[in-house]
Design a protein around this nucleic acid. Sequence first.
RNA 1: UCCUUGAUAGCUCAGCUGGUUAGAGCGAGCGGCUGUUAACCGCUAGGUCGUUGGUUCGAGUCCAACUCAGGGAGCCA
Length: 504
Amino acid sequence: MYIEELHSAVGKTVTLKGWVSNKREGKGIVFIVLRDGSGYCQCVVTEETAGTAGLENAQGLSLESSVELTGLVIEDEKQIGGYELQVSGVIPVGESENYPVSKKEHGVEFLMDQRHLWLRSTRQWAIMRIRNRIIYSIHQYFQEQGFVQMDAPIFTGNACEGTSTLFETDFYGEPAYLSQSGQLYGEAMAMAMGRIYTFGPTFRAEKSKTRRHLSEFWMIEPEMAFYDIFQNMDCIEGMLHAIIKDVLAHCAQELKTIGRDISLLESSLTSFPRLTYDEAVRIIKGEQDVNGKNGIGSLEEELRRVQLRLEEVNAEIADRETKIASGGMKKGEINFFQTKIDALKQEKADLEEDSRNIPQWIRSAREFEYGNDFGGSDETVITRLFDSPIMVYDWPHAVKAFYLKRNPENPDFARGVDVLAPEGYGEIVGGGERETNVELLKAKITEHDLPMEAFEWYLDLRRFGAVPHSGFGLGLERMVTWVCGLKHVRESIPFPRMYGRLKP
RNA sequence: UCCUUGAUAGCUCAGCUGGUUAGAGCGAGCGGCUGUUAACCGCUAGGUCGUUGGUUCGAGUCCAACUCAGGGAGCCA
């Protein structure tokens, strides 16, 4: 029996198999919070119901040891999950001595070193379940519409965009690169199957140390024959709506566990504002307001809010420290105060980080030069003004990839589209309509200084029955990060690979 | 690559302008108490202050270099 099935077993005696996620002990009574992967359940062991041997076995259980518990299921609204097990039998399975991940706060580095164990904690459990739901939802969305899933190669001989740094490997004595995108192969397959999507790992050797970069991440790259950029945007919006709806419908408990404010997801179920690059630039530079809000103005407001809060936090820390130092407190009270102080110090560190970064962002938004690509701070400025993702399209063709189609009415612009998530999360999707003209493509390949012979097969797609087609790439981890409201992508994937992090 | 912040007990942190034997909470071990929700109370153990060099009568504290880590820029999903 799994914990998530307990609703059908009230009043019955069942056996749960899992791990001790928490334990509290009293005289003649032991409370075990058992987790089995499907959920959490408090199990109560007393001498009366479990006998002397059962109670002793329960007392001997340590944090994260494994156990089989048999008992009567009762309903109890106060408990996590809503049920409780009154245990009659305790069979210890595997010991666990000095489990390193405690219930107290830990630092990032320590938790990352313990990632194999950290995954067992409640918050990580919830995030991984939401990630799973998002993956399922993506497959369902495309499969139901008749898209064919395809696998693009991981070893590639050519750089797709040529700009990002690649991981080089030795392929039987020849240099090969780990794929940074399956798109070009996706285009070939779309000419065979009509509409396809890839779902696989991609690799970028960027030495980025920011909250939104990984060296290895999973990307979903649909490619559709006979779709223009506007149909492409419809497809992106449909997919994102499907994901959000599914997560809201199936992951209520998980969202609650991680404390996600779902109103920000619900507001994303409307159609996304579609802005041209020109409009977006005006908003970033503060020349155009959105619903009465100014991009730079709201950031300045945020900075003031941060500084105000910083003063409050400093005052509260000082106040609590003075109270502890003045004596006369019970140990429990000091403990409580100390915990509060620890939390406040963490908040203080974050606020100080913000107060260093925000002025930089304001300056960079003010000094934004028309014609450039958006940076992380520009995305922050603009997305804070909307309560749903936004789509920015028609980019200056000079700053975008070689394969993007030019706007037929204004060749200075390329038919690319970026989807920026709200709350400062930034780019989660990049895509566009593809160039179909062989000569324009060749010119771009030369201009980007890419090896022409490596792209001959790709040019064949234009020589033999070229059709208008479009596609996009969704970064799975960035999607998970936004949906869960995480501070960093590293929590969105089981074992993150990033600059400086290869283990465990 | 650049800017910025940091490294003190198993974990999270304090240690002011250099000064005798480096502190707290959690965790661990032992004892007590309790249908408990990060329970509580008492006791015990636990440290080459990231590394190397320098300044000084004296360095956890000041200086330099290096290593590692957090955040940001660039680049990107």
